[in-house]
Amino acid sequence: MLQQLANGVFSGSIYALFAIGFTLVFGILRHLNLAHAAIFTTGAFLGIEIATRTGIPFWALLPVVAGIGAVAGVVLERIAFRPLAGRDDEHFAGLISSVAFGGVLIALIQARYGTEPKSFPYEYFPNRLFEVAGLRVTLTQLVTLGLALALMLGLAWLVSATPLGRAMRAVAENPTAARVVGVNVDRVTAGTYALSSGLGTVAGALLALNIGQTDRGLGASIELIGFAVIILGGLGSLWGAMAAGIVLGLAEALTIHYFDSTWKGLVPFALLFAVLILRPRGLFGHIKVREV
């Protein structure tokens, strides 16, 4: 039982890391970026390819993956969102063009890596097992949880306490007012996508590391639960995404414990509907990114 709960926390932290990148873009720019799952998958393949080719250690791998992800995010915004700015159907059109961008990314992944799963090199990450108070946890799980928490808290700090975060919150509230005071809205937009996609690729690489391998369906497998996390936490809420990620991870684990894994897909969504009936704006719906 406790073991299942611990596992729930570990997978929940990856859900949360996936979700905060998505919810950040929505909170600041009101864009629904449906290419986020493809960015996540890209991170997993990039991590494996770079680790295999260069053998660089894990602590150096993640910043490289995040950097490439950040660039991909800037390109994504340029191609899928910026040309639509100012149109009446800007938000809906962006949703569709981001689906298309994601489709292109997945097709490129298939062209480069084929359809077979790819794995990290054998014993790339030290395979250590700890027993803490009767719980069995791997070093990978501990590192994943620690990194996910650190990245989420780091993002919350960046949004609430740095000049970039201040400019982001200004853009979130009123882009015209932000321009009046001299905020370079285009640059803040690019920066928001860079952060979001950087976090998304790191989340993908971390999940692949935990599973040991990836295939092109990795993003699709987490996408729905990631969106459930975002809605449950309240769209645009960073703290909500963090809490809801863990809650859904736990809900999944408890489902497996009490029923069996065939019910795993159902319970998080049942929980989502239950919460939405009771609190239509999500658990943290009143705390938006701009108020973090």
């Binding site: 201040r166 919150r169 200004a170 509230e173 009123n174 015209t176 007012a177 932000a178 009046v180 701009r290 108020e291």
Partner: peptide, 8 residues
């Protein structure tokens, strides 16, 4: 209309 940022 001032355009101050009310949440900041």
């Amino acid at each position: 209309g001032r355009q101050i940022l009310g949440t900041l």
